[in-house]
Simulated scan of single mutants.
Amino acid sequence: MLSIEEYIAKRKKEDRLDEFDGKFKDENLKICVNYIFEYFMNYISITEFEMKSIIKDERVEEYRKTLRAYEPEIIEWLTNIYDKSGKYANRIIGNMLEKYDFFSIFNTESEFREVSYELYKRITKRIPELKGQSEMIFQFIKAYHKKRAHAEGFSDYTFSNSILNWLEQTRKKYGVNIAVFAYKWLDQLYENKDLWPNTNRKDRFGQSEYDYTQKRNVFNLESLYRNIPKKAFIRGKKQELEALMMYIWLHNYCRDENGYWDEYSQKVLPIIDLQDKAQV
């Protein structure tokens, strides 16, 4: 932005004004006054508007870059919403979806459609610009699930091949990432000690810790299997799910100081492998 002196000098140059020419003293005075008027009434206001527009465009483009994991149609939709409302629809809707305990293992159109119906009123209350866009909300919910399904890989998991195959085949065939579901379940367990049964508590240095060495109902799998949707990729996989959660817990939520994973895996993984071979 030019200063007033720079703006007047610029306009003088454009008009080839010679303020030292005494013949046009009165006329030059009026012209210079007009320069000042132009500066404050037009130049500054236009420039501020342009600057705000530039800043807004930059923010929109920065936001667009964060959406690369989505398909172009979804990116354009989310970007337009942000441009109009300044709201991050992917984050707002995503946070709502994360409240569903079993969202990460949904894999049918009817499940995603039901969620979109349930959330429509809440979503449009937070983002009024989405009223009448139920179909795009539905499409985004599916896209968000797909993005989450590819958020966690398994290449660095030291499992038996049968568990790794189960994880990979489930993602490939059903679009479901069991590891994402396991992380979410364990997050809730880790953050809410009220969910811990007395049999799975132990005191250490005056603090309560989760006892994952118990043989029954570790990670509340009994209650999980009572409530989990009946899915083909979950049915008969309770032991595999326990092993997956045990691996994640010992490698991410606590220090496996006593080498319990080695002990556990030597006992459990061979059994899982044998069961897997028997089913082939």
Rank of each mutant, 00 (worst) to 15 (best):
M1G: 07
E6D: 13
I8P: 00
R16H: 13
E19T: 12
D26Y: 10
L29F: 11
I31V: 14
C32L: 15
N34I: 09
F37A: 09
M41Q: 12
M41H: 09
E48L: 13
M51A: 11
S53L: 10
I55W: 06
I55D: 13
R59E: 12
A69C: 11
A69S: 13
E71C: 05
I75P: 01
K87H: 03
M96K: 12
L97Y: 03
F103I: 09
F112E: 01
Y117C: 07
E118S: 11
L119G: 00
Y120V: 03
K121R: 11
I123K: 00
I123P: 01
R126N: 11
R126C: 08
E129W: 04
Q133V: 00
M136E: 12
M136A: 06
I137S: 01
Q139H: 11
Q139S: 12
K142P: 04
K142L: 07
K142F: 03
H145L: 07
K147S: 04
H150L: 12
E152C: 10
G153N: 13
D156N: 14
Y157G: 03
T158R: 09
N161M: 10
N165C: 08
W166L: 06
L167F: 05
Q169Y: 09
R171F: 09
K173A: 08
N177R: 08
N177G: 09
F181T: 00
K184I: 05
K184S: 12
D187Q: 09
Q188V: 08
E191M: 13
N192L: 10
K193T: 07
P197T: 10
N198S: 15
T199A: 15
D203G: 10
G206Y: 07
Q207Y: 14
D211F: 03
V218R: 01
F219I: 04
N220M: 12
I228N: 01
K231G: 01
K231R: 12
F233G: 03
K237E: 06
K237G: 01
K238A: 08
K238T: 07
M246V: 02
L250N: 00
E257V: 12
E257C: 12
E257M: 15
N258S: 07
Y264T: 06
